[in-house]
Write a protein that binds this DNA or RNA. Structure first.
Lengths: 209, 209
DNA sequence: GCGATTAAAGAACGTTCATTCTGTAATGAG
DNA sequence: CTCATTACAGAATGAACGTTCTTTAATCGC
């Protein structure tokens, strides 16, 4: 009979997610990783497919855990208020327990954006995960924009797909900004103003002659 | 009398800029670097302050050479057309000689954004260079927005500073996107639509009753 | 031509790293 | 208790890496 493992697989992946999120893939060495995870280095290779295999698992875990609330906003939201809420959450300091449990802006940024920059297309498997997430966020934003346009909360003269891409770029830009500890106050408000239908009509044009 | 050096300092820095832009700092090893630069490894340390010193020089060089046309648009531009031009240039495939001499979207992204993600605030000297650039771009965008608002090409109901931050985030997001080889068609058009003054007033509101 | 000075070429060094290996340990079946 | 199987702890391996060192070379002044 085999010796029982000492580690909890889900906990290992969760801790690994945090390590890779903070350090990136290359700068996260196996010694530090296995110590932080409470994992034997042999098990890293035998049960998790090595450092790269664990990294893939961590990416998937990040998508499941960290991005889920954002995706819910995109996929279940009704219109402009949800887009604004998305950027409100993305730009405000996190509180309490959980992956963003810090008192100030999370300098880790977004693990997906960090991975895009660090690894890009040099690892096809990683690239596929990143692409899948980006496609999903883009579709989510596009759907949200279309629903907002249908309900009148978002101006109807903008292309939903192009708008979705811009909003995705904005969120990825926020990740870069966070790595530098830069704050982006007023982003949600400016996004609201940019996407809202025209509300103010110049008085001279409203007056009857 | 000393032995004359074989390398051209400006060429070394220029080539180093391309290497770091493509590979990032850590993934760019000294062996490959010195071979690509035609530089002796002793000279790397003696005359350029080592790999890190050369990287700092490369960042400054990048700011001087690559970002200059963009900064000119921001600092000399008059209004919305120049913001749109900025994103037109940033999203179209580069042609001909020069740093972006490739036939398709540059997968290198922006060296500054890449550095922000890879190094962030862990190297204060690097962080200062990145901050300086970001501050300048933000000021440039803010000034451009204010000039556009003054001339009427940009809607007057948006905060210039918040708008500037959004546009900077967008450009950094473009860098992340480029690393994944993702295209962002229609960005310039959506930026134009979002920032232009209201042009269409619904007919029912114009008609007198 | 020699001497002093500094650069180039490439080796050497010490460190870091990912991955594999070895000895020990933990389990249940028999 | 023994055996078979697999995990753990930590060492070992081989490679990669940044930086320094050694030998040779290139210059100009004298």
């Amino acid at each position: 009979m085999a010796r029982p493992v000492k580690y909890d697989r889900d906990q290992v992946v969760d801790l690994a997610t945090r390590q890779f999120w903070e350090d990136g893939f290359a700068a996260c060495d196996v010694e530090t990783l296995t110590r932080a995870l409470g994992l034997n280095r042999h098990s890293l290779y035998k049960s998790f497919g090595g450092k790269a295999g664990l990294f893939h698992d961590a990416l998937e875990h990040y998508l499941d855990l960290v991005t889920a609330p954002y995706l819910m906003l995109l996929e279940r939201g009704a219109g402009l208020d949800d887009i604004v809420a998305y950027f409100d959450i993305a730009t405000r300091p996190a509180k309490g327990d959980g992956p963003e449990a810090i008192a100030e802006l999370d300098p880790r940024g977004c693990l997906i954006a960090n991975t895009a920059v660090e690894i890009g297309r040099s690892d096809p498997e990683v690239a596929a995960i990143v692409d899948r997430y980006y496609d999903r966020v883009e579709r989510g934003f596009a759907g949200l924009v279309m629903r907002g346009q249908a309900s009148g909360s978002i101006r109807s003269d903008i292309d939903p797909d192009a708008t979705a891409r811009w909003l995705l770029l904005t969120s990825q830009g926020l990740s870069v900004s966070a790595r530098m500890g830069r704050a982006d106050p007023g982003l949600a408000a400016i996004v609201r103003a940019a996407l809202a239908p025209p509300a103010h009509i110049p008085l001279s044009e409203k007056d009857c002659r």
